[in-house]
Computed example of a mutant assay.
Amino acid sequence: MDTALILDVDGTLVDTTYHHALAWYRAFREVGVAVPVWRLHRAIGMGGDQLVAAVAGDEVERSHGDRVRELWKAEADRLMPEIRPFDGAVELLDAAGAEGFRVVLASSGKPDHVDHYLDLIGGRERASAWTSSADVSATKPHPELLEAAWERAGTTHALAVGDSVWDCDAAGKLGIPAVGVRTGGFGVDELTEHGARAVYEDLHELRRDLGRLARLAAEARPNRT
């Protein structure tokens, strides 16, 4: 099969969405900016280069953006020991490989965070390649991260899996099909409105549908140059 399965990591394979929302909340609070946790949750899935302006405005980005990202990293580091894989993550990776997908983990996380996640799910043994924020200049909803992952896969076709609307938006810009998993807290309607071709309650449900998803990816006409 000449198809990459491009898997988001944060919030999709490992349970980090609400940890990151809390870390961002604490980081903004340190610079005197109040951003409600619910608003932060809605932005999780964006990279940090996009998130500050998205939730707090361009002026906060100009005045405090780099400092907020630095503070977020420190807060997220403290929460790393609490992170666990979602049930079914390892089984999904194994099944995808057995199905014939070339598995690539498309994370915009910090390199040391990605290393930790790889340890949790045995990613180095189960994936062909992976990315981190160090590999791109712009993160989701820009498509650069998914494109970098796809290039590492070296396949003609690809399918993206993510937990947020930002994953779906990035895939749509590349013309590759995306499917959503509810693990990030986004609703079915939200994910489908942003282009998800299917939405699954958990990773086990997604794993059982891999055969159909392979056919879906093969039928797509991507925008890759």
Score class of each variant (00 low, 15 high):
Arg84Trp: 10
Tyr117Lys: 04
Phe101Gln: 01
Glu91Ala: 15
Arg102Ile: 13
Ala98Leu: 10
Ala106Met: 06
Asp112Lys: 13
Ala96Met: 05
His116Leu: 14
Ala95Tyr: 08
Glu99Pro: 01
Asp112Thr: 13
Ala96Pro: 02
Gly109Ala: 15
Gly97Phe: 02
Asp77Met: 08
Leu93Asn: 00
Asp119Val: 09
Ile121His: 00
Pro111Arg: 01
Glu125Thr: 10
Pro85Leu: 13
Gly97Asp: 00
Ala76His: 08
Glu99Gln: 15
His116Arg: 15
Ala89Trp: 02
Ser108Phe: 04
Asp87Glu: 15
Ile121Met: 05
Gly88Phe: 06
Leu92Tyr: 00
Gly100Ala: 11
Ser108Lys: 02
Asp94Gly: 06
Phe101Gly: 04
Lys110Gly: 09
Arg126Ile: 07
Gly88Asp: 03
Asp94Asn: 11
Pro85Thr: 09
Asp119Glu: 15
Gly122Met: 09
Met80His: 14
Asp77Thr: 12
Arg78Lys: 15
Leu79Thr: 04
Val103Ser: 02
Ala127Leu: 10
Val114Leu: 11
Gly88Tyr: 00
Gly123Arg: 00
Ala106Cys: 09
Leu118Arg: 04
His116Met: 11
His116Ile: 08
Pro111Cys: 06
Asp115His: 12
Lys110Thr: 14
Ile121Cys: 01
Pro81Asn: 13
Asp112Leu: 12
Glu125Gln: 13
Gly123Trp: 02
Pro111Trp: 00
Glu125Val: 03
Asp94Pro: 06
Ser107Ile: 05
Gly97Ile: 04
Phe101His: 02
Leu93Met: 10
Leu105Asn: 01
Glu82Ile: 04
Asp112Gln: 14
Arg126Cys: 09
Gly109Asp: 12
Arg102Thr: 15
Asp87Val: 12
Glu82Met: 15
Ser108Arg: 08
Ile83Phe: 06
His116Val: 12
Leu79Gly: 05
Leu93Ala: 00
Arg126Gly: 08
Arg124Phe: 08
Ser108Leu: 09
Lys110Ala: 15
Gly122Pro: 03
Glu91Asp: 14
Arg124Ala: 10
Val103Met: 01
Ala96Gln: 04
Ala106Asp: 03
Gly122Ser: 11
Ala98Pro: 06
Leu79Asp: 07
